[in-house]
């Protein structure tokens, strides 16, 4: 009787879990398409070449408005850049340091140990430069949005003309996947706006995929190590479960 009850509860619980997703914001909700990324699935990994191209897209396009203040240049070593390459990348940016012995703040080229340079000194300056809209920090953006990497990719490729009858507010742009469909950010990716050193064509889809891969790595740099450890842990525990169960059955043999 209890077993049947448990089965019923499991079914109910499963149904509830499947449907208890965060409710959509106002406006007809368009389901986010499932995009295949190199890091999907239990054994997925970040395509290093794609992530490096994605960093280039970020640096040349997004970094004009969006900071990633939780990352440091030294973290880029994990994407396969050498120490010299990271030092070279960092030194392209000027960061504020100080106070010096005269009590003044000064600018100097960034080092590997510095955080990514933010385009604006504070949120108010960011809003002021963008018509009151704050360009969100992208350090953990794929974790901060329902749908994760799929959503970010859909957003970047989801710009289109507004359907007939929809009036756009001033300064807003139509996006198929943004909740409410009106987004303050203009279409950020145009074909060929970036030149990839490895010759990959800079289509909007490629750039969107590469920058999404980069952002997904930035949000969860431990992902590959986490999954690899998980496989080992669960295999170990499964074997241990078998052993402990055998011991338990043996101890209980005279009782059953």
């Amino acid at each position: 009787m209890v077993r049947n009850t448990l089965k019923a509860l499991a079914v109910i619980g499963g149904l509830l879990a499947a449907s208890a997703l965060p409710a959509a914001a106002a406006g007809p909700y368009v389901p986010i398409p499932d995009t295949r990324f190199s890091f999907d699935g239990i054994f997925g990994a970040f395509d290093r070449a794609s992530a490096q191209r994605g960093f280039q897209v970020y640096k040349e396009t997004c970094a004009a408005c969006h900071g990633m203040r939780l990352l440091s240049y030294r973290h880029l070593r994990e994407l396969g850049f050498t120490e010299q390459q990271v030092a070279a990348i960092a030194s392209q940016f000027q960061v504020v340091d100080g106070p010096n012995d005269e009590g003044q703040m000064f600018e100097r080229p960034a080092r590997a140990s510095d955080r990514f340079r933010s385009p604006f000194p504070n949120r108010q300056a960011a809003r002021a430069a963008n018509n009151g809209a704050y360009p969100v920090d992208l350090s953990i953006i794929t974790k901060a949005r329902a749908g994760g990497a799929d959503y970010i990719y859909a957003l970047l490729t989801g710009y289109q003309d507004p359907p007939p009858g929809v009036e756009m507010m001033e300064g807003m742009h139509y996006n198929r996947y943004f909740p409410g469909h009106m987004i303050a950010m203009a279409r950020p990716l145009m074909p060929d706006q970036v030149t990839f050193a490895d010759g990959t064509p800079a289509t909007v889809e490629n750039m969107a995929r590469d920058v999404t891969t980069f952002l997904a790595w930035a949000a969860e740099p431990e992902l590959e190590q986490r999954r690899a450890m998980g496989v080992k842990v669960i295999l170990f525990l499964t074997v241990l479960a078998g052993l402990v169960y055998a011991v338990k059955r043996r101890i209980w043999a005279d009782v059953h």
Partner: peptide, 19 residues
């Protein structure tokens, strides 16, 4: 056989605790 099973299980558990 009993001892062996106990030993292997205990060893596995000890490895787990260390890990």
């Amino acid at each position: 056989r009993r001892d062996f099973l106990n030993l292997v299980t205990a060893a596995f558990a000890a490895v787990g605790v260390g890990a």
